[in-house]
Design a protein around this nucleic acid. Structure first.
Lengths: 199, 199
DNA sequence: GACTATACGGAATCGGCGTTCCGGTTGTCA
DNA sequence: TGACAACCGGAACGCCGATTCCGTATAGTC
């Protein structure tokens, strides 16, 4: 039904500009979070705002595209984690790696933490195969006896969302650091469990 | 230097209105988060916007006042926790209680999670004595051998910030729930530690 | 080289929201 | 009761940033 239009293909310059816009958006939003402005993205990309809007109907779509990229990375890393000989090491190193990517991306963090339109985020995670990977990683860990029995795949996004919130805080203050936060949560996920999880 | 003005005392209606505004603000912001509008607060309080502004110079101040109230509650609960016979029970029940309060308050959650002006939040925590209580609760737990040795008082706000982020998500989705998140983190704080925390 | 569908740029538009302002009201004190 | 300072309401203002619009430029085709 969705046949390629019979007319001319997408113009080369259009394709190039789309790439530029995405790249500029990555940089702007990573640095300033979702408050970065469309005009800034356009300027950084060296195009007019109009062009940005031709490629992405609105700001939300642009942000979405970026989140999708990140999720794809997480998924890829997760697949590798499944190959790791030590299920626990694979699991924890994976989350630290995702944390590293997150921490560099303010917009991603506040999308996750303050969770604008979680429905959409959920769908993207589904589409990118992230849910599936979460499921497998948790299963593997539980079977190996290194992850607590009552752990669930959804615990991963919950934890990472929390870590994202921490990553948003100015690092200096209190000497926090998302790594410490993640380390605590990971200990909480480890078998043997010290308590029973609600739900 | 800050002597009471020698002129008439604050008018009774002014005091009453201030209270109304605070109450309305509590309700509006709790429900909609910090995006709730000043006009809504005013309407709900049954006063004009001007009145809101006479009592609080700007939106930030109003939010701040509310956050301060919350922190004061946390502090009070924390002091009670210190009296609990079981240091672990005192600690964990305390955080669940705080979570309960948080979860009902969207504005508080997004202040904590997306952390607008963390400097200010920090200062309020200091003033309300929350930092002090955190310190004591952790110390007590560590001495009793129920909290991991490498835990630090700052881990508490970090964890609760993460929980706040979770509380912001629509509960239905994925069957999450901040309680589960907190439970995991608490297990991570418990002695004996399974790993060494970074930093 | 001529032609046209596509793209482009960026000024102008539009809507939302915090904040200000001032004429009118009301509590308080003598 | 009168006078005045303290308050009040809410219309109007100003800023800011997303989005639109349209005249112009250009890739791709014949």
């Amino acid at each position: 039904m969705e046949a390629a239009s019979p007319t001319r293909a997408i113009r080369a310059d259009a394709r190039r500009n789309r790439e530029r816009v995405l790249e500029a958006a990555r940089a702007c939003f990573a640095e300033h979070g979702r408050i970065a402005q469309m005009d800034d993205v356009a300027r950084r990309a060296g195009v007019g705002v109009g062009t940005v809007y031709r490629h992405f109907p609105d700001k939300a779509s642009l942000l979405e595209a970026l989140v999708a990229e990140r999720f794809a990375q997480f998924t890829a890393l997760g697949r590798e984690a499944l190959e790791h000989e030590d299920p626990w090491e694979g699991f924890s190193a994976w989350l630290f790696a995702c944390g590293e990517l997150q921490a560099e991306d303010r917009a991603f963090c506040d999308s996750m933490a303050a969770g604008i339109e979680p429905e959409v985020v959920f769908e993207i995670a589904e589409r990118s195969g992230l849910h599936d990977v979460n499921q497998r990683v948790i299963d593997r860990g539980r079977r190996a006896g290194v992850i607590r029995k009552d752990a669930r795949p959804e615990d991963i996004p919950v934890i990472m969302g929390g870590v994202a919130a921490t990553a948003l805080s100015p690092k200096a203050k209190l000497g926090w650091g998302w790594r410490r936060h993640l380390a605590i949560a990971l200990d909480g996920m480890r078998a043997p469990a010290q308590s029973k999880l609600p739900d």
